[in-house]
Design a protein around this nucleic acid. Structure first.
Length: 563
RNA sequence: CGGGGCGUGGCGCAGCCCGGUAGCGCGCCUGCUUUGGGAGCAGGAUGUCGGAGGUUCAAAUCCUCUCGCCCCGACCA
């Protein structure tokens, strides 16, 4: 491909509204353009990357017996009503009516339609198992599109669905996907980890997420380097460090105007782990008091699993529920439901006194939390101990690049996706669902592969394998060498871009670094007179001067070696 | 949905507080010079100042409403 024939609008400056590195670079290097919030145009270079990623995904899906199908993006309301999600899902789903007034929606995922298909066309255990997948556009009216291509309202997703006759079959399908996904991310050159995840509203019994470490991520995972335990902090278990010992007898202490953990610790000259933090939340059944240690953070999703949907209480709600202003509330002297983190079972704490301007010390679970329910509600923190091996945990910020769920019969039952078993009994098909966001793979690759000059693509998903830069396109020997190299490398099956623009060398080099093609051959007049060209690796910046005649062979060897 | 910020030429920004001729850098066009890390000089084009209404002799600037975009949080099936 000739650079001059390709639309690659690079920018010297990053758009002012970009925050994430991948967002800035993908815009600057001419891969994408934003049309509106959460809606992106993929430019020629961007498409090449996406297609590379998609090809890897298809190959690995096909390798585990996946069969590609396409599903309508426009869906009738009925299937979604049958599973109940028409009502469960809120504004996140785009809805519309067709000309005759029928309710329709734009599919945000395809459990319903895939299961519909299975319900209609799978009848016997002889037809199982099946793995069907699609690689298509999905639409979600995201509350907050962000970080460039990472969270958009319209995006491509590979989702596959497994259909098995029993749990054992599901285990197998699940495992096949787990392994296929690992291969996909490895082949795409992404650093990632596999973590246990919350099954959330998808239902089901087991779920894992595939996470690529990056500052632009939206999730946190706890990882134990000791035993390999890895989980989303939404459910990660951890053993907090023991708190500082104290044998204070129970007593009231005046803490005028000291409300926050920080104010109280400074005032009393204690550490946060000697405090008991009380957080009032409001549920449909009234207020609930959540208790964690002062150095811990309440995890709302963990709490939600115990008490259902809730939100933090407003200041006036705190006053009406407990009769004191925020900052002095505590676990004692009232009949509110209390959920306490297990770490509080031991130790002696300082807590709010439920009396304005006062705290109490000497609080122990045995004496003061007898009516509390205990449940893990703290957020796993770095340096907490692993529950399995005791080694310290590490917390990584990550981009979710894929997930796998065991769905069970959540969709097959309402949609009547049944089969007849060997005995002629009708049974619901056991399902799994498995998703990958190709754009997130691309963005994660940029997040993980860049320097001050631009993107550094992994060879496997780079828009081109190699860039040829004839420094002076008006010099005949230069161009002859460039054309010969170009032909030779294409002949070997490599994807080559040739910067044939009549631009100054500096401009071409800057663009080359920005766009991030992994290998570059520079043909300059001076070197050429000595019969040499430069082969440069984008990642390391390492330059090899080689003979013109051997350049194609040399570069080819390098690319294969390093892949 | 709650909190915050920003909309001025293609891009990045200044001007707004304190109303009075719309400006800078980059890019773009022409010419000459230059030619291995985003060239120099000279000349040139490009603006309903997001939109609507109001105040005023006069509004990019002040007021009201509205739309869009970004960030933090909530949400993320």
């Amino acid at each position: 491909m000739r650079y001059s024939k390709m639309f690659i609008p690079t920018l010297k400056e990053a758009p002012s509204d970009a925050e994430a590195i991948s967002h800035k670079l993908m815009v600057r290097a001419g891969f994408v353009r934003q049309l509106a919030a959460g809606l992106y145009i993929y430019l020629p270079l961007g498409i090449r990357v996406m297609e590379k990623v998609n090809r890897v995904i298809r190959e690995e899906m096909n390798a585990i017996g996946g069969q590609e199908v396409t599903m309508p993006v426009l869906n009738p309301a009925e299937v979604w009503q049958q599973t109940g999600r028409w009502d469960v899902i809120g504004d996140e789903m785009f809805r519309l009516k067709d000309r005759s007034g029928r309710d329709m929606c734009l599919a945000m995922t395809h459990e319903e339609t895939m299961t519909w298909l299975a319900a209609h066309d799978i009848r016997s255990y002889r037809e199982l198992p099946q793995i069907w997948y699609q690689l298509q556009t999905k639409l979600r009216d995201e509350a907050r599109p962000k970080s460039g291509v990472l969270r958009t309202r319209e995006f491509t997703m590979k989702d596959s669905y497994s259909f098995d006759k029993d749990e054992e079959g599901l285990d197998k399908s699940y495992q096949l996907h787990l392994e296929a996904y690992k291969r996909i991310y490895s082949r795409c050159g992404i650093r990632f980890s596999v973590v246990q995840s919350d099954t959330g509203m998808m239902g089901g019994s087991m779920a894992h997420e595939f996470m690529a470490p990056s500052a632009a991520g939206e999730d946190d995972v706890a990882i134990c380097d000791g035993c390999g335990y890895a989980a989303n902090t939404e459910l990660a278990l951890s053993v907090p460090k023991p708190s500082a010992a104290s044998n204070d007898p129970f007593d009231e202490i005046a803490t005028p105007e000291r409300r926050t953990i920080e104010e109280v610790t400074r005032f009393l000259k204690v550490t946060p782990d000697q405090l008991l933090k009380s957080i009032l939340v409001v549920t449909d059944n009234g207020p609930v008091l959540a208790l964690v240690r002062g150095d811990q953070t309440l995890h709302e999703k963990k709490l939600a699993k115990l008490i259902g949907p809730h939100r933090p209480a407003q200041k006036d709600e705190i006053r009406s529920a407990l009769g004191v202003p925020a900052g002095f509330i505590g676990p004692m002297g009232h009949k509110l439901r209390k959920i306490a983190d297990p770490v509080l079972k031991t130790g002696t704490y300082i807590a709010g006194a439920n009396k304005e301007g006062f705290h109490v010390k000497g609080v122990t679970a045995a004496q003061h939390l007898s009516d509390a329910e205990f449940g893990d509600i703290h957020t796993a923190a770095a340096e907490d101990a692993c529950v399995h091996c005791g080694k310290p945990l590490r917390i990584d910020r990550v981009i979710e690049i894929g997930n796998i769920f065991k769905l069970g019969t959540k969709y097959s039952v309402p949609l009547k996706a049944n089969y007849l078993d060997e005995q002629g009994n009708e049974k619901p098909i056991i399902m799994g669902s498995y998703g990958i966001g190709p754009a997130r793979i691309a963005a994660a690759a940029v997040e993980q592969g860049n320097d001050k000059d631009g993107i550094i693509w992994p060879l496997s998903i780079a828009p081109f394998h190699l860039l040829i830069v004839p420094v002076n396109v008006n010099d005949r020997p230069t161009m002859e060498a460039a054309e010969a190299l170009y032909a030779a490398l294409e002949e070997k099956g490599f994807e080559v871009l040739m910067d044939d623009r009549d631009e100054r060398a500096g401009v071409k080099f800057k663009d080359a670094d920005l766009v991030g093609i992994p290998w570059r051959i520079v043909i300059g007049e001076k070197n050429l007179k000595e019969g040499q060209v430069e082969v440069k690796e984008r990642k390391t910046g390492k330059v090899d001067k080689v003979k013109v005649a051997e350049a194609a062979e040399f570069a080819a060897k390098k690319m294969i070696e390093k892949d």
